[in-house]
């Protein structure tokens, strides 16, 4: 009888712990992939770096859609969709789900740079973003 109660409670606790530490989970994954030095400065550089798109010939960067300041609301260059600020200090909903972090890193690195970002690059960017 007791187990019936304890098991769901444990489940609840563990799932809460996971969602609260999405960032920690990401960093431990990066470390497992061999990342040893994480640099916010390199993260900032990559965030602001402009890449020439092979298809359109136009320059693309993270700031194309995420606004110049991480504390501002961005706007998708094509769809016009408003994008909530990336700075954790003013947007607490950011970086709370591992699945979401992975999804957008994959999509947006491919769109901006033309390839997926390495574990090192992701670690640097994430370190930069969560400190804002």
């Amino acid at each position: 009888m007791k187990a019936k109660i304890i098991i769901p409670v444990l489940f609840l606790l563990s799932s809460q712990a996971v969602s609260a530490n999405a960032v920690d989970n990401m960093f431990s994954e990066y470390k497992q992939s061999g990342v040893t030095n994480i640099s916010e400065i390199k993260g900032k550089e990559l965030w602001e770096k402009k890449f020439k798109n092979t298809k359109t010939g136009k320059l693309r960067s993270c700031t194309t859609c995420h606004a110049d300041s991480l504390k501002k609301t961005g706007k998708h260059i094509k769809t016009g969709k408003l994008i909530e600020p990336m700075a954790l200090s003013i947007n607490k909903k950011r970086y709370t789900k591992v699945k979401k972090i992975k999804k957008w890193f994959k999509r947006n690195c491919k769109w901006t740079i033309g390839r997926e970002c390495s574990a090192q690059e992701q670690a640097d960017i994430l370190a930069y973003l969560i400190k804002q």
């Binding site: 992975k102 999804k103 994959k106 999509r107 491919k110 769109w111």
Partner: peptide, 12 residues
Amino acid sequence: LEDHFDENAELD
């Protein structure tokens, strides 16, 4: 979804 009207909309 990788080329979703020129956007990347890949899903797991």
